[in-house]
Amino acid sequence: MLEIRNLHAHVEGNEILKGINLTVNAGEVHTIMGPNGSGKSTLAQVLAGRDTYEVTEGEVTYCGEDLIELSCDARARKGIFLAFQYPVEIPGVSTNYFLRAALNSIRKEQGLDDLDAVDFLQLVKQKAKLVEMDGSLLKRSINEGFSGGEKKRNEIFQMAVLDPKLAILDETDSGLDIDALRIVSNGINKIRGADRAIILVTHYQRLLNYVVPDFVHVLVGGRIVKSGGKELALELEESGYAAIEKAAEQAATVAS
């Protein structure tokens, strides 16, 4: 589904991603872990098409298409979803209104008719249950005055409604208390499926107690320095990133 080859990306002249290689197939859950500043969020944003990042080298193929050429909204309409690390508050627009407009633009891309208000509400009701979200929140301005946990739940809820092929979750677990983490994880598990791929970007191993990944990758200094199964996460939890960072440094020195 997603093929990343030697991806380099800059922001304001600083190279953040320095040659990422990653293959993600349908049905798989990949976790990307790493210390602060390693480029995890940048990778997530680059995949979603944020234009503040400039891709300088490499290629990304998504379902056989060159992803880099597509605008962020075109990517969304083709089934890519980014759950934001810091969801934006938008006064004056309710989640329901915006989400229906978004869903209908995705449906249009798929050649489907607009969902009318009644069918939409039906869908929303069902998906809100997934994340135990109070329906009244959806009538309020997007994320305005929401708690941290409510914002993250709103992201998972939107993901469930928009039904993406590739979901990228950028630190969705950060800053959540254990109840909220359980709810969010539960939501993620429910949308796992053979047709969908999920990339979980996280700083903490804790999420992985609830969402068990197929693959774990460690990102250090803009490169994936280690990949493995779910046991890699446990290993990291015990030894921390320090050992891996050191090994990566040594490898870089040897290589140069």
Binding site: A48, G49, A76, L82, V93, A101, A102
Partner: peptide
């Protein structure tokens, strides 16, 4: 960016805001 990342085109995102 938030609105566009959910599938709204640039004009619709601007209009909505």
């Amino acid at each position: 960016f938030y609105l566009r990342s959910r599938g709204l085109d640039e004009q619709a995102a601007h209009g909505m805001l």
